[in-house]
Design a protein around this nucleic acid. Structure first.
Lengths: 340, 340
DNA sequence: CGAGTGAATGCAAGCGCTTGCAACGTCGAG
DNA sequence: CTCGACGTTGCAAGCGCTTGCATTCACTCG
């Protein structure tokens, strides 16, 4: 039984319509009246009912954020960034965590954000034709981070370019035998980021092999599931190979951490025996002296938030995706190979 | 212009009232009718408008989750756990990130969840009298994780007991000079968890000092802000002390990680020169061979989710908080002190 | 001085659902 | 055969806002 618009109206001595207008700052209300209304509202501690307002206007003051995982470093940072800018704009954030293919299927089947949000943000998730259509059918702006979708604004980094730079660094150090830890097909949830990093790896590694006049080692491409333990296993696989790589490029720092562990357990020293290069610049990368590709994760989130706000107010969609800069951070895990 | 209840009603050849009842599974609708309605709704891809429904019933199908940070390991895991169980129950999660005191003040001033949620979950945040009153004034169930509040259900761990166990482990190994890395007053956002762990530290450490007939080193209590870099600095402080501790108990793994780094930089070996014990069992604790107190973070979140659902359906509040078990995980960062 | 103008305000009709109550069979019991 | 009970369904009144349109009023201008 909280107060309603009418209570405020009565207290301020005006009609409900005027209160509504005054509270929302709509023009057409005399200054004095507005002040009186505001005072009355403050006195009663009144706040409009989002449900009623939403029913009347069709707007919800809420955006839906769809994430594959919330408890991974990358995603939690992005969410944090988005949340910050939305909160400052007075917009609430409805969080939907997919988790896996089943969760994803359920989400799109039930589609809980129907009529619940004014805009949607999708993180790192390439959409199927049907999913995109479904999302767009909401008639709400769609923004993506890390993927590009027709009809959506997007922010991201140049995954391919960044990975090529990373690989070139290893090559320049003198490495010719470079392993990769990423994701093996089928990639969970259809992520394309791992594929882009893999493609960059291949491009550089295969070029090196061509120069050396030999075939690329097929076994050098391993999957680590973007987790520490996955990375550890993948490194184990790499170490079991007849021809061992002298350097490893991991598509995420967390996998690189796992690789470091596997190496340590195997009694190998980094970077003396094997160089390791990661991707992300995770909080702990510095701690572990991991060389890596830094990407501005918090900024990605904030930028996405700003894109949402922009789309919410003017609705225009940017023609090209915003690409944020990455940079190679060299620490102690990469060095020239030692001849063995 | 999505379909509305009436469209479904027309298609099914019944009244809107019947559709409403059929869709929600309310008793009092003939089986055949219900089937027809469901079919019609499916055919149109109809879904009720949450706003309208909420306006009519007063329920929102949403719970608000208030967190101090989303991008810290502990919180992101909890959120993930909560989200999972809520999602399975078809409930949406509105996320509010406080960030700092200013954000907290703003949150309670604007109080955006007023009339937006059916229940509220507060993570790790001790509430002021006023804040608690404000939250309870929503008339919605309140659940907390990591704190206890009158009028709220809660889940947590036995921080004090767990920390005492951790400290005793160090003592049993033979350590008498034990440093602490936690939070120094004023604790940000008024967290009490750091204080409980500090109290446990003192209890054990002071007892040891009494046995040895000497005064506790005041400088042994340092603050690391629950971050890696904070932990690193704190360890630096500890190392600068005239009498250096032979073991350090960090109130979080992330601070322990920082401590490890400071030690490595100082050229000291763990556990040979200094033992380090953390708290959390962070994903990377294994990687760094950190001995720690494991707490079931995901379970805390899931339990909180279940508590919310229970409160949402029957409204009864548990008399006592649920305490989940912790356990000491011994890895390679703790060992008996070496006489120097 | 009257008509015209524009700003400020109020009226009332929705927005799309839920739900108490009435209406309408149908059926079994008396 | 009548009546009451019961299971189904529909009616219509909200739920608390927003907003197009009408109204009122104070001015300005010719």
């Amino acid at each position: 039984m909280p107060d309603k618009l009418d209570d405020v109206a009565r207290l301020a001595g005006v009609s409900a319509a005027t209160v509504s207008r005054a509270l929302r700052g709509v023009r057409g209300v005399a200054e004095g009246t507005r002040a009186r209304v505001l005072a009355a509202a403050a006195e009663l501690g009144y706040a409009v009912s989002p449900a009623a307002s939403s029913l009347a206007t069709g707007r919800t003051g809420t955006v839906g954020v769809i994430v594959p995982y919330v408890d991974r470093w990358y995603f939690s940072r992005i969410i944090s960034g988005v949340e910050r800018v939305l909160r400052e704009a007075g917009i609430s954030l409805l969080l939907y965590n997919l988790g896996d293919d089943a969760g994803r299927a359920r989400f799109f089947a039930e589609f809980p954000l129907r009529r619940r949000v004014d805009a949607v943000l999708v993180l790192s998730l390439p959409l199927s034709e049907a999913e995109r259509a479904q999302l767009l059918s909401l008639g709400a702006p769609l923004v993506t981070v890390g993927t590009e979708e027709p009809g959506a604004d997007s922010v991201g980094i140049d995954d391919h370019g960044a990975a090529v730079t990373a690989m070139r660094h290893l090559v320049q150090l003198g490495h010719r035998e470079i392993g990769f830890i990423g994701e093996t097909a089928p990639v969970p949830l259809g992520f394309t980021t791992p594929l882009r990093r893999l493609a960059a790896y291949r491009e550089v590694y295969h070029a090196v092999c061509r120069e050396d006049g030999r075939a690329p080692e097929a076994g050098f491409e391993t999957g680590g599931g973007f987790t520490v333990s996955g990375g550890e296993q993948a490194m184990g696989t790499l170490l079991g190979l007849p021809r061992r790589p002298s350097a490893v490029f991991a598509a995420s720092d967390e996998m690189a951490f796992g690789a470091l562990r596997a190496l340590r357990r195997a009694g190998l020293r980094v970077p003396h025996d094997v160089s390791v290069l990661g991707f992300d610049d995770h909080d702990l990368a510095g701690l572990l002296e991991l060389s890596t590709v830094a990407q501005p994760v918090a900024e990605l989130g904030e930028h996405a938030g700003r894109l949402l706000l922009a789309r919410l107010s003017d609705g225009k969609i940017l023609t090209s995706p915003a690409i944020l800069r990455t940079r190679l951070v060299l620490r102690g895990s990469t060095a020239p190979p030692t001849t063995r």
